[in-house]
Each structure stands twice: as structure tokens, then as C-alpha cells.
Computed example of a mutant assay.
Amino acid sequence: MVGKALETLFIKIWVIVKLNLFFWLFSCCGLIVAGVGPALKTVNELFVSHEFNYKDITLKEGWAIFKRNFIRGNIIFYALFVLLALLAYNLFLSVQIQGLPFLMIDFLLVFAMIYGGVTYQYTLLLDSYYEIGLKNLLKLAFISTLSNFTNLLKIAIGISLILFVTWKFKGLILFGTFSMIQIWSFTATKSWRQTIDQRLELHA
């Protein structure tokens, strides 16, 4: 029984490492600037499709997904990037002004940045599950993030912990950080995806 548990643990670690290496490989294929968005989407879609079945996660399939989602992945990623950049700039300006009203504005801006990051994770997951237009995808992701505050907290806290551990152990940037974020988001939103499937079945 211990042997089986260890085998399962090693398989999960290998999947995390494998997907994270895929992320860096595909990011470099897009010269980082045009590669990060599609690479994140590729890692997300590979895990959604195969979870911890490591033999089914192949470079060939990953490359096909990366090419297919190159433009869409960049659009989604840079929409988030621009949003976070604007919010961060406004936060930078706001923290320089003292007073309770501006403290409340700071809080709202920080929450908006967290909300934007979680919505991005929902967007990647939903896009991996359903064939849906970009406009409707963004609407569904926005609604999904609002629909369950507990899930929003779970994703935000989980990502924060992953980034904190990464800050302590820098090697995770190469071997685990980005894949762990995608896997955690997948795990944290399982109940909501089941709810969506049930509602789609009712309207089928």
C-alpha cells in the first residue's frame, strides 16, 4: 500500500515537472513575449485532457495545441496583462495619497487585480472544456468568478501559496510553479464545472 502511494506521488510530481518544462519550451518557441499566453493555455489543456495520465501527455500533442491556440492564447493573456497593468498603475498612484477614502480605493484595486487573475484562470479552464466564442468565453468566465466567492478565495489563496513557496525555492520556477497553478485551478473549480455540465444537460 505504501508502495502504491509512493508511485502515485512520483507520478504526480513527474506530471507537474513535465508540464512545467513544456511551458518553458513553448514559451521560448514564441520568444517569451508571444509564447507565454499560448504556453499557459497549452499546459492547461493538456492537464484538462489527461490529468495525471503522464504517458498521454506528449510533446507532439502539446505542440499541436500550442500552434492551434497561438493567437487566442495571446489575446486572452494580453487582455489580462493590460488590465493588471492599468490597475497596478492606479494602485501605485493611490497608495501615495493618505486618507480613509484612498485606503478603500487601494483595497478595491487589489481585489480587482486578484479578481482579474482568477478570471483568467477560469477563462483558460472553460476554454479547454467547451467550444465557445471568445466573447461568450469571457462572459462565462466573468460570471463563473462571481458565482462562487469560495472558489475565488480557494484559487487566490492557492496561487498565493504557490508563489510564496516559489519565492523560497526559486528552482520551482523551472520545474513546477506554472503547472502547479494550472493544476490547482483545475482542482479548485471542479464543483463549478460540474454545475455548468448539469445546467447544459438540462438545456440540451
Score class of each variant (00 low, 15 high):
Tyr89Val: 10
Gly30Cys: 11
Thr166Ser: 12
Thr150Gln: 10
Ala204Cys: 05
Lys190Tyr: 12
Ala141Glu: 02
Gln198His: 11
Leu146Met: 12
Phe26Val: 08
Ser179Asn: 07
Leu40Ile: 03
Lys55Cys: 00
Ile114Phe: 13
Met1Ile: 11
Leu25Ile: 14
Leu86Asp: 12
Phe92Tyr: 15
Val2Gln: 10
Val95Asp: 07
Leu91Ala: 02
Leu103Pro: 04
Phe10Pro: 00
Val2Tyr: 06
Phe66Ile: 08
Asp56Phe: 02
Leu31Ile: 13
Glu7Ser: 10
Leu124Arg: 09
Thr123Asp: 06
Thr189Ala: 13
Tyr129Gly: 03
Val15Leu: 08
Leu152Gly: 05
Ile11Thr: 14
Gly158Arg: 07
Ile57Ser: 01
Ile155Glu: 12
Asp106Arg: 14
Gln182Ile: 01
Asp106Asn: 15
Phe77Leu: 00
Gly117Trp: 12
Phe102Ser: 03
Val110Tyr: 05
Ala64Gln: 14
Phe23Arg: 02
Asn20Gln: 06
Phe107Asp: 01
Leu161Asp: 00
Asp197Leu: 10
Arg193Gln: 11
Phe66Pro: 02
Ile105Gln: 13
Asn44Ala: 10
Leu126Ala: 08
Val2Met: 10
Leu125Ala: 09
Gly37Val: 04
Thr177Phe: 01
Leu202Pro: 03
Gly73Arg: 01
Trp24Met: 06
Gly73Lys: 00
Trp14Cys: 06
Leu137Ser: 02
Gly30Tyr: 08
Ala204Ile: 11
Thr187Lys: 12
Leu146Glu: 09
Phe178Glu: 00
Phe23Tyr: 12
Met1Asn: 11
Leu19Val: 06
Gly3Leu: 13
Ile157Leu: 15
Lys139Thr: 13
Lys135Gly: 05
Lys18Val: 03
Ile183Phe: 04
Thr119Asp: 01
Leu59Gly: 05
Gly30Ala: 08
Ala156Asn: 04
Lys12Trp: 02
Ala141Thr: 06
Thr177Met: 08
Phe178Arg: 01
Asn148Trp: 04
Tyr54Ile: 15
Lys4Phe: 04
Ile16Asn: 09
Phe178Cys: 03
Pro38Arg: 00
Glu201Lys: 15
Ala156Glu: 01
Trp14His: 13
Asn148Arg: 09
Ser128Phe: 04
Leu91Ser: 03
Gln98Met: 09
Lys4Glu: 14
Gly176Ser: 05
Leu21Trp: 00
Thr8Lys: 15
Asp106Leu: 04
Phe164Val: 14
Arg193His: 13
Leu46Glu: 04
Val110His: 02
Gly176Leu: 06
Val15Lys: 03
Gly30Lys: 12
Phe111Gly: 00
Asn148Glu: 15
Phe175Ala: 07
Thr187Leu: 14
Ala34Asp: 02
Leu161Gln: 05
Asn151Gly: 13
Leu40His: 08
Gln96Ser: 12
Ser185Met: 09
Gln194Pro: 04
Ile11Pro: 01
Ser185Asp: 11
Ala64Thr: 14
Thr145Lys: 00
Ser27Tyr: 02
Gly37Phe: 07
Cys29Arg: 00
Pro38Gly: 06
Phe81Val: 09
Ile114Arg: 01
Asp127Cys: 04
Ile13His: 08
Phe66Arg: 03
Leu152Cys: 10
Glu201Ser: 15
Leu40Ser: 08
Gly99Tyr: 09
Cys29Trp: 07
Val2Trp: 04
Leu6Glu: 05
Thr187Cys: 04
